[in-house]
Amino acid sequence: MLYSEKVMDHFTHPRNVGIIENADGIGEVGNAKCGDIMKIYLKIKDGIIDNVKFETFGCGSAIASSSMATEMIKEKPLSEALTLTNKAVAEALDGLPAHKMHCSVLAEEAIKAAIEDYYKKNGIAYDKSRFPDCESCGYCAEGKCK
């Protein structure tokens, strides 16, 4: 099999699919040209992620990564969510094929983008260096992005 049982489980029964009306932070990363777009919606209460939803256009591992990543940050403090790495997402899924690792990177970046959006909207000062620009997909790496 291409994917682990856990990937297939999160792909066929994704958790936290959907949108949040009046979300406190929204992050969208990826590019339809590359075949992957991830969008994360956050509801924040007292510095804690009260609710999280996602929408994903992409392959099985992109959908599974979104599902797993949202599970991992749900009801966690923002400071903890910010430490989530793509490696942790991939490990929680019992691994991803090498050429699918960028899907877990997208998940990490989408969450960071949503948190950054929340900080900006609320005028909260933050360390910009912790929010790198999208650089996960091969298109960007090859400079084909724009």
Binding site: P14, V17, G18, I19, E28, A32, I37, M38, K39, F54, E55, T56, F57, I63
Partner: peptide
């Protein structure tokens, strides 16, 4: 499509 941000 129901989970695709592109479709939305």
């Amino acid at each position: 499509r129901n989970m695709s941000p592109v479709w939305r």
